[in-house]
Amino acid sequence: MTLLSLAIKALSTAFIVVAASLVAERTRPFLAAMVLSLPVSTGPAYVVLMLDHDAAFIAEASLASLSATVALVPTVIAYAAVARRGGSLATSWLAMLTAWLAFSLATRLVDWTAPAAIICNLAGFALGILATRRWRHALVAVPPVRRWFDIPLRAMIVMTVVVTVVLVSESIGPGASGIAAMFPASYTSFILIMHRRLGGTVVAAALANGLVMLVGFVGFLAVLHVLAAAGRPWTGLLAGLSIPVAWSALVLVASRLEGLGGRSADDARS
């Protein structure tokens, strides 16, 4: 990987995580989740892979990513369950990391097809969304006082996480690369920055809302895989990226109509 490619991935992830942290401090976890769940980490990771590999490699890697995406459901649940009970930053994050690693490795034991991976994801996310529906509302009581070094420090934390993950996964094959591309770098960085600042309950609410947003991410990977398998990975990337954006917009509209986001603060006060 070139230094430029690594810098693009690190900077894009840092931008979105810092933006999500600022939104979380000033508004609601629902809106922070919208920002945090966009494919700003995985998207640049696939740009980097496409610069170095052919369409067949991208098709195999994206199928591995698609099958590994379902691991984000127990990952979020593990963090939220511990954090909501008052778990420390270290304990909550280790619970999340353990769940992600265990379930991601478990997906490697299955010889996946794209339809099977899509069905598994839809079922897994449906169950995860139902299981965390009571966790999605939380209020930031008083916005924390921002210090002059907060934003540079947050960006540095995110870039450190991203660079470490990329360097560790440099020499692995397409299947493992696809799983490595799904490492929750954005979520990890958000937790490291905001757990102590806002509390585990608020961060857990953001990640629980993120499960709803990540349904569009399944569409992104499915389209990328299908078009890469047809020899058009760049078309697949561009077409796929439009899906999570459209899905997030649809969820936002639905939340305003049904009160999921627009009246969550009122619900929490009542």
Rank of each mutant, 00 (worst) to 15 (best):
A7H: 03
L11N: 10
S12T: 15
E25I: 14
R26T: 03
R26A: 03
R26P: 02
P29H: 05
L31R: 05
A33H: 08
L38N: 00
A45H: 07
A45N: 11
A45D: 05
Y46W: 00
Y46L: 02
E60W: 03
S62L: 02
L66W: 10
A68P: 10
A81E: 07
V82G: 01
G87C: 02
A95S: 13
A99Y: 01
S104I: 06
A106N: 03
V110G: 06
A114F: 10
N121E: 07
N121V: 03
L127D: 03
L127G: 08
R136A: 05
H137L: 13
P143G: 05
P144A: 09
P144L: 08
P144Y: 10
V145C: 07
W148F: 03
P152A: 03
T164E: 02
T164P: 01
L167T: 14
S177E: 11
I179F: 01
I179Y: 01
M182K: 04
F183H: 04
T188V: 01
I193L: 11
I193R: 10
I193K: 10
I193S: 08
M194Y: 07
R197H: 09
L198H: 08
V203W: 04
A208I: 00
V215P: 03
V218Q: 11
G219W: 06
L224C: 09
T235W: 06
L237V: 07
L238V: 04
G240C: 03
G240L: 02
S242L: 15
P244M: 00
L250C: 09
L257A: 12
G259E: 09
G259H: 10
G259R: 08
L260N: 04
S264K: 09
D267T: 13
R269K: 14
